Computed example of a mutant assay.
Amino acid sequence: MKTFELRHIFQRSARLLAYLASILALGQPGVLRAEADHNGHDHDHGSHSHEGHDHSEGDGHDHDAAASAGGHDTHDDHDGHDHEEGVVVLSAEVMKEFGITIGQAGPGVLHEEVVLPGSIQFNRERVAYVTPRFAGTVMEIKARLADKVEAGQVLATLESTDTLRPFEVKAPFDGVITAYEVSLGQTVEAGEPIFTVADLSTVWADLRIYQRDMGKLTQGQPVLVSGGQGSGVFRGTVAYIAPVVDEHTRTGLARVVVKNHDGTWRPGQFVKGAVGIASHEEPVVVPRAAIVEYEGQPVVFVQTDEGFEPRPLVLGHADSESFEVEDGLLPGETYVTANPISLKAELGKGSFGGHQH
């Protein structure tokens, strides 16, 4: 009895090993699962044979794989866009939806700039210290701090300490009262400032020049003055460069006269000025907005017969808005000028809709 059982076990083991070897040779994992399931229901009868099951199970899994492969083809063609290896194909509707614009590569002008810190100051040529002509006592005050005044407007009435006759102190020009040092009944001397009137329709942007940049600035250069978020910008020119260096900061001074009719710029406000020190034309210039980093390189997306492909660039000079292209893009080639990040996402994800290939 024991000899029969051992022989039966050896026969089953030999058949199983041979079957496993045939499965590994054919590379059919589905058959392996089927055989494992079948062995779980095996009966202890030496006369049974498993060989009759070899063909049917493998055939069934082959049909399933073919059906699965055929079903995957339905994802290859997306509505409005397609994705090939390294190329993105987009319809006009998709480009409009994502704000993608194109243009032709060509020459452009680059502006070299120096950015300087600074602050807004009173235009000292339009500031007046109002003083009485005679010594007197303040009898009436008609203007206060921050009041807007007009030329000839009476600011205060005083009584002369010598003649006891009243006289008036008037505004010399249109402006704003920025300071006053006077009280009712106060006695003031002739020539003593009691009001400060400033015309704020223009102010000065005083920019500090670092020593390394002093040789780069000249009078008349264009300047873009900006005061941070919400303060707007002003385009002007360098009106004045100080002939001396500040002994405390060791910096020079460049001054811009800023128009301020709406009162946007206030004395004491911090600003920065981008001074254009040179300009030159290059054969191929692209906007900064057209360039993205892809696989560790700066690229633009160039339109080809197959679609849009990422083109690595060698970049040269730059300013705040554009880059010179030394290599990678030829004059006349069509490329994406705005929102290239959408195409980069397409290459990374497979499609805008999030379908994975």
Results as ranks from 00 to 15, higher is better:
residue 1 M to Q: 05
residue 5 E to V: 04
residue 8 H to S: 12
residue 8 H to N: 13
residue 13 S to A: 11
residue 13 S to C: 08
residue 14 A to K: 11
residue 16 L to M: 13
residue 22 S to F: 11
residue 22 S to Q: 15
residue 26 L to R: 14
residue 35 E to S: 06
residue 42 D to Q: 13
residue 45 H to E: 13
residue 47 S to L: 14
residue 50 H to S: 07
residue 51 E to V: 03
residue 57 E to I: 01
residue 59 D to M: 11
residue 59 D to K: 12
residue 61 H to R: 09
residue 63 H to C: 05
residue 71 G to T: 11
residue 74 T to Q: 15
residue 75 H to L: 15
residue 76 D to K: 13
residue 80 G to S: 06
residue 80 G to W: 02
residue 87 V to F: 04
residue 87 V to M: 08
residue 88 V to Y: 01
residue 99 G to C: 05
residue 99 G to S: 04
residue 103 G to E: 13
residue 113 E to H: 06
residue 115 V to M: 05
residue 115 V to P: 00
residue 122 F to N: 15
residue 122 F to G: 03
residue 122 F to D: 13
residue 123 N to C: 03
residue 126 R to S: 09
residue 130 V to A: 06
residue 132 P to V: 02
residue 135 A to I: 01
residue 135 A to E: 10
residue 137 T to S: 11
residue 139 M to D: 10
residue 144 R to C: 06
residue 149 V to M: 04
residue 164 L to T: 07
residue 165 R to S: 15
residue 166 P to H: 05
residue 173 F to T: 06
residue 173 F to N: 09
residue 175 G to K: 06
residue 179 A to W: 07
residue 181 E to H: 10
residue 182 V to H: 05
residue 183 S to E: 10
residue 183 S to W: 01
residue 186 Q to Y: 03
residue 187 T to Y: 02
residue 192 E to F: 00
residue 210 Y to A: 14
residue 213 D to Q: 10
residue 215 G to W: 08
residue 220 G to P: 08
residue 228 G to Y: 07
residue 229 Q to A: 15
residue 230 G to N: 13
residue 230 G to W: 11
residue 232 G to S: 11
residue 233 V to I: 13
residue 233 V to N: 14
residue 238 V to I: 15
residue 239 A to R: 12
residue 244 V to A: 12
residue 250 R to Q: 11
residue 251 T to R: 12
residue 251 T to E: 13
residue 253 L to F: 02
residue 256 V to I: 13
residue 261 H to S: 09
residue 264 T to P: 09
residue 265 W to Y: 14
residue 268 G to H: 11
residue 269 Q to P: 00
residue 270 F to R: 14
residue 277 I to C: 00
residue 279 S to L: 07
residue 280 H to P: 01
residue 285 V to D: 01
residue 287 P to M: 02
residue 287 P to F: 00
residue 288 R to S: 04
residue 290 A to L: 03
residue 290 A to S: 12
residue 292 V to F: 03
residue 296 G to L: 11
residue 306 E to L: 04
residue 313 L to M: 12
residue 314 V to P: 05
residue 322 S to F: 07
residue 323 F to Q: 01
residue 328 G to N: 05
residue 330 L to C: 05
residue 336 V to Y: 01
residue 340 P to K: 15
residue 342 S to P: 00
residue 349 K to R: 10
residue 349 K to A: 05
residue 350 G to A: 07
residue 355 H to Q: 12
residue 357 H to M: 06
